[in-house]
Amino acid sequence: MEWLQQLVNGISLGSIYALIALGYTMVYGIIKLINFAHGDVFMLGAFIGFYAIARWDLGFFPALIISMLLCAIIGVIIERVAYKRLRNATRIAALITAIGVSLLIEYTVIFFRGASPEAYPEVLPNTSISILGASISSQSIMILAVTIVLMILLQFIVHKTKIGKAMRAVSHDADAARLMGINVDNTISATFAIGSALAGAAGVIFGVYYTRIEPLMGVLPGLKAFVAAVLGGIGSIPGAMVGGLVLGVVETIVSALGYSLWRDAAAFVILILILILKPSGIFGKNAREKV
């Protein structure tokens, strides 16, 4: 049952894309910025998890939580320092700033620890479980479970809590949200915090699953998660989840068919196709019904 195994691999990879894509899409939804530094927050998350496990001897879950918390703080700092003053600037100025922040993070990490890769310690038991004749690693199952829990938690925050309602209100109409008494600046910060925490979680999961991390590891997954967000419909949370999973599965299928050299190209072919065929993405709204 080769295909089932491939499907599980694809979903594992896709969950990582989806977790990163959520941050892209939430930030875009609220301030219309493609935060190109987001992939680097993912990288920082992977390194924080690495140090937590390898240096401080923590287990997977404490490392995951520490990484998420620190990434949330880093995300808020990035927003407050670099993006906040650009709220009313042109989009291109904000985009260039985002690329600048991305390079700054990457090369700051290289400056302090060098560019060499690091091998993630094995923190999760790695046994194979046989399901329907396919051998599936217990790690994949764990990763999937963590991703699902995080997504349910996110849905709960966005739909049921006050801060989640504020986030949806601000992303729909910031001035109307102000008139409700919502503090727009704090709401934007909260969005960065949540998106960055998810990227941090994705970093730790990536490290555990693929075992090799390095300072430029955020670039490609970051771009692909961006593609996943566009595929799902940028600004849409369910879209980012579905887009990430679809992209992961497609990449794995492309590899499994023997075209592994084309794996990375697949994401960008999808991006081009979606921009031609349905620029608003799978879950995208075609037009905003703003008055």
């Binding site: 309602k165 949806r168 729909h172 109409d173 008139l179 409700m180 008494g181």
Partner: peptide, 26 residues
């Protein structure tokens, strides 16, 4: 002081009741 803006500006992606709840945000 509450302001009913020109053009209504309801949160069209949310239900009637959620809009009312947002009115009581503070």
């Amino acid at each position: 002081i509450s302001h009913v803006p020109e053009g209504r500006r309801v949160f069209s992606n949310m239900s009637v009741e959620e809009n009312l709840e947002l009115g009581a945000y503070l």
